[in-house]
Every structure is written in structure tokens, then in C-alpha cells.
Design a binder for these strands. Structure first.
Lengths: 140, 140
DNA sequence: TTACCTGCAAAGGGTTTGCACTTTG
DNA sequence: CAAAGTGCAAACCCTTTGCAGGTAA
């Protein structure tokens, strides 16, 4: 399904706008909360249906950040990746150009098409290290 | 928790062995099936408890491969990453040295500790492309 | 003996779905 | 008007947990 095929109903526009405006990754419930704050009475089910469609249309992308729920971000533009702290759960975003050549090589060697790239690092953030909550490789 | 702190009970050894012997990623149910094939009557709950502990001990690692369940692999040794086809669900493994420098830069810049790296590409595999099941960027 | 493991079955929690109704094009 | 979207609540499914009994050191 392409973006053009998507019926842009009021709730889908709202979901897309919320995701675009938030510069961090949101989960379904957070999107739902923000929609309500803006006066839109939509159901969680609709949010889930919307994000699935927006994702299929290539407008947003879904990420597993090592947490229980999926998170969503606006697609394209400034590609970035994630680091999740196993101590406090905070997520750090970072960019790198190194991934691009991996993609290109893969496409060339395997004759595949790549639509989405997730690079997730898990570890311990500076603050948690300082608090010595998690000091060795094996964690807690 | 470190590996040395882990009580290596029969079922945990079995789980670890099954994961090591399988050179692909297994989910909890698959591990459970293989354990039963080998004559061990263990419960799924025990499998889940075992993989969590083995993971904390650094002996195996858990991956989200864009599917509903988590998959597990033996940790360390030959690091590799994954490509999941959104058409047929097949998973392709690949290696690259490019990621290492990303890790090093991150550690240096952010003063963090990194324990696990997941690089997942999603797209369409060669065969699905040929069958024209999924031809454009947005998928089906 | 004490601490830890296990099986069972029930509970959890994020996500999906059936259905009746409403909205969009 | 036909096709698609929505709300609600129930269903789903993977995973976790409480508890009673078993096992290891």
C-alpha cells in the first residue's frame, strides 16, 4: 500500500501529526494520550490500526527498543539509531554513516530490497555506570 | 549475574546446549519442542526462566526479528546481524565489520557500556522480489 | 535444612479483531 | 450508495508469576 492509497481520515492525520511533531519515539498509548489532549476522542484500537497503515504506507516506522511495546517515529529524513540503557531504560539516539555501506553491500550481494533498518545497542548509560548500578558485562 | 553464579541444572544445560547446537535463532517454543524430542519433559515456563537467566549470564542473546516472539542465539563468537523478509518471513544472517567502529565511537563519545548490538534490516528477499509479491518500497 | 528450581495453571499486558454503526468519496 | 473507518469489548498470544512440591549443596 502506498501513501496515496491511504484514506487520510481525521484520526490518521492526527496520529501522523503527533508522531511527526514529537521528536522522540512514542508508543501507542502515548499517541493516544496526546490525541486526547488535543481534544480528539479516539480509541486505542484506532491508534493501532492507524500506525499499522501509516507504517505500511512508509510514513512512519516501528521500532523495538528492547521494551515491551512498539514505538513509532516519522520515517525517512534524518535516519538515526538507538541505544537503550538496561539500567534506567532511557533511550539515546545517534547517527552514523557506517550503516549505509552495509546496506549497499547487502543489496548488491543478495539482490534484496531493504525497507527498514534498525540498529539497536543495549548497555549501560553513563549515569547508571556512575551510580554503579550495572558495572559488569553481565549486568545487575 | 555472572555465568559462574548460575546453577547449571539439567534443564538449563539442555536449553543452552540446544541453543548452541542450533545454528539458527530459536524461539521459546522451538527450544521446548527440541527438549522434548530429546526426552526431557520440561515446561515452557522453565524454558522462559532459563533463557532469561542464560541471557543475564551473557551466555545467549535475545533478538527481536520483526516477529511476534523473541528468538535466542548463543552469544559471542561470530557476531552477525539479520535481515528479515517481510514477504516470506525468512531470516538471512550476515556479517559486517562496519558496526564495530560505530560501537567504539559511541563508547568513546558517550561514556557508555555496550552489551548487546542488534542490527536488523527488513525488506524483501530475492525470491519474493522475483515472484513480484512485494515490488515497491511500501510493500504489498 | 535452606535456598533455589520446577510444573501447573492462572494472570498479565500489549495488540488485534468481530460486530454494529458511522463516515468518506 | 458502496467501501472503508471507528468504538467497544472480547479475544489473542507470548510471556510471566503464585504457589505447592521437588531438588541441590
Amino acid at each position: 500500500m502506498k501513501a496515496a492509497d491511504l484514506r487520510m481520515t481525521e484520526s490518521r492525520q492526527m496520529v501522523l501529526q503527533i508522531i511527526k511533531e514529537s521528536h522522540t519515539h512514542l508508543n501507542a498509548e502515548e499517541i493516544w494520550q496526546r490525541a486526547h489532549q488535543r481534544g480528539m476522542k479516539t480509541s486505542l484500537a484506532t491508534i493501532y490500526r492507524a500506525v499499522k497503515l501509516l507504517e505500511q504506507a512508509g510514513l512512519i516506522s516501528e521500532h523495538s527498543l528492547g521494551q515491551d511495546q512498539s514505538h513509532y517515529e516519522a520515517a525517512g529524513k534524518n535516519t538515526h539509531y538507538h541505544f537503550t540503557c538496561i539500567g534506567c531504560g532511557n533511550v539515546l539516539e545517534f547517527s552514523t554513516s557506517q550503516v549505509q555501506s552495509v546496506i549497499e553491500k547487502l543489496i548488491k550481494d543478495q539482490h534484496i530490497q531493504i525497507r527498514n533498518v534498525h540498529l539497536l545497542m543495549e548497555g549501560t548509560c553513563r549515569q547508571c555506570l556512575e551510580e554503579k548500578k550495572y558495572t559488569d558485562k553481565a549486568g545487575k
